[in-house]
Design a protein around this nucleic acid. Structure first.
Length: 567
DNA sequence: GCCGTTTTCGGCCCGACTGTTTTCAGTCG
């Protein structure tokens, strides 16, 4: 028996109970028990007294004992025998929760999505108390939507929509302040919707402007403080706007940034002090409201340091507050070591890339165009690379405030060989190796390719180590823990590729790499000067993995970086 | 279902919106 199975079982029991229309506190007691186990860093073997944990009582404890003794939970088995599994997917229909689904099952014997659809079409659902024609119609529409709309949308698909909405909000005079919130602000890889907080004195006017000037496909809700719409575009996406007064803004931003678990912890902390947190402020014992100018002020009010949105997750952040000052921030970044120019498939000349990097205040960068093998990207031949080295050496003289290093993003070929000879690599300051081909090879072969790159003395870094595209492509499935071991043994850097398509390595591996003492680089892989901005999301994604400044190569001084690449 | 040196009963994070009601339950975040 492992911890994961216990957690999964408790969560499943909660789900089935919800579908029975059980008391919601009872349901959440099982969820809480699962969370207690999840948040405990110890493995099952290390936990000698699992039944004594706070949040685990007689019933949840019995489930755990059952699992430990017999390998199955008789409670879950009973529930699965009573509650048809076809009810589970119905929870995904917006507007339907446990209570309503239980009612549909009890009174109309609806036990699946298909049965529900038929019952709605036959207008049977509207005969139930609490349901009416409008609800019935809505259920049908939502079932249709479920089939056409993906559950979550990737961060790279959300980014242009956030920019579009922000540029619109900026033009509305009645808006005093605004910010994106929700999981997008926490840099989740994918989100169900986008949240915005708006401070305004004229909520009605702003509501009308939002509804009229945004590409609204559907209005989900439009109240005085909340506007919820589906926006039209390449990807249909739900967007929530919360309209508050300026003095409520910091509290609203904090509340709607979440996460839910983070908020619950904060409310518990407040409660212990006899205070009550809501999205409008903090209510004191005498009933008066405390307001804040910023989230920093809000946390300080509870004697907490500012907790960045990126780490507001499962509540475990509250036990790691001492690490917050160590986390990497954008201000720590001194350079970007993976970018392309017109020499391969970039949109700008080397000089333009240098100028844009200077504007960012960087002290050093590396130009890393593609290598010969990648013909589709106009990869550089040996001759062209030598010429580029010469060009960069000439350009170096022009600048005293930024160091330009020569480099390459060299392909690791399908047969495992490297695209350039050592003799050529030797002449470069910084060598990146990466895989762009034959993703479907068996893991053994992929690892052989990576091993060849890692053991080469002239290679400094492996870029986008898994090759994934968020929510779209899994990559080439390397054995990352082994790669991390190899990087450690051979003194290589692994990349956190900051392009929102990639965010590769992902957080679980970034954590592991830092634990093992492997240096990590955050690079934009920019093919356009506009993409240099991805350093920001890269750094914030790194925070999600609790990466420290000193782990990140980009925070090292020019001198330290020079020392490192010399070897 | 779980918890508790104010409590072993009565809370549980809190509030908005919708749809179905005629004062509120259910859902959602």
């Amino acid at each position: 028996m492992d911890k994961k199975t216990i957690i999964k079982t408790l969560e499943k029991i909660a789900l089935y109970m919800e579908l029975q229309g059980e008391n919601s506190f009872k349901v959440s007691a099982f969820r809480k028990a699962a969370q207690v186990l999840e948040l405990d860093p110890r493995s099952l073997a290390e936990m000698d007294n699992i039944l004594k944990l706070k949040g685990i009582g007689a019933s949840t404890g019995a489930v755990i004992e059952d699992l430990l003794n017999t390998g199955v939970s008789s409670l879950l088995v009973d529930l699965q025998n009573t509650v048809p599994s076809g009810l589970l997917p119905m929870l995904k229909i917006p507007g339907l929760g446990g209570k309503k689904i239980a009612k549909l099952y009890k009174e109309l014997q609806i036990d699946s999505m298909d049965a529900l659809k038929l019952a709605c079409e036959a207008e049977k659902v509207q005969t139930l108390a609490g349901f009416a024609a409008k609800t019935e119609k809505k259920i049908l529409t939502e079932i249709e939507n479920l089939q056409s709309k993906p559950e979550r949308t990737a961060v790279w698909q959300l980014e242009p929509i956030v920019e579009m909405v922000e540029s619109k909000l900026a033009t509305i005079g009645e808006i005093e302040k605004y910010s994106v919130a929700g999981s997008y602000r926490r840099v989740k890889e994918a989100s169900k919707d986008i949240d915005f907080i708006i401070a305004t004195k004229s909520p009605q006017e702003v509501r009308e402007l939002l509804l009229n000037e945004l590409p609204v496909l559907k209005v989900i809700a439009a109240g005085d403080t909340k506007v919820s719409v589906t926006l039209d575009g390449e990807n249909e996406i739900d967007v929530d706007f919360r309209l508050v007064e300026l003095h409520q803004y910091a509290s609203a931003l904090n509340h709607f940034t979440g996460s839910k678990d983070h908020n619950i912890k904060m409310r518990q902390i407040a409660k212990e002090q006899g205070k009550k947190i809501s999205e409008y402020g903090v209510e004191l014992e005498d009933g008066s409201m405390q307001h804040f100018h910023s989230e920093e002020e809000f946390y300080a009010y509870f004697d907490l340091p500012f907790i960045p949105p990126t780490v507001r997750e499962d509540g475990s952040e509250f036990s790691k507050l001492d690490q917050l000052p160590l986390l990497v921030t954008l201000e720590d970044i001194k350079g970007d070591f993976h970018m392309h120019s017109t020499w391969s498939d970039g949109a700008h000349s080397i000089e333009e890339m240098v100028e844009a990097s200077r504007a960012k205040g960087y002290s050093h960068i590396v130009i890393t165009d593609h290598s010969d093998y990648l013909k589709v990207a106009n990869g550089l031949s040996k001759v062209r690379l030598l010429k580029q080295i010469e060009t960069i050496h000439e350009l170096k003289n022009k600048y005293t405030d930024i160091e330009i290093f020569t480099g390459t993003e060299m392909d690791i070929l399908p047969d495992g060989s490297l695209d350039f000879e050592d003799e050529l690599l030797k002449q470069l300051d910084f060598v990146i190796a990466s895989i762009h081909s034959s993703f479907s090879q068996p893991q053994e072969k992929i690892m052989e390719r990576l091993y060849n790159a890692v053991k080469n003395p002239y290679v400094h870094m492996i870029a986008h180590p898994t090759g994934r595209i968020i929510e779209q492509r899994n990559g080439y499935n390397p054995d990352v823990p082994t790669l991390i071991e190899w990087a450690k043994e051979n003194g290589k850097v692994l990349e956190l590729n900051a392009n929102p398509y990639r965010l590769d390595l992902q957080t679980e591996y970034l954590k592991l790499a830092q634990e093992k003492g492997v240096p990590l680089a955050i690079n934009t892989d920019a093919h356009h000067i506009a993409q240099l901005k991805y350093m920001d999301i890269g750094v914030r994604y790194a925070q999600k993995a609790w990466l420290h400044k000193e782990t990140i190569v980009n925070t090292w001084t020019l001198e330290k970086f020079k020392q490192f690449i010399k070897k």
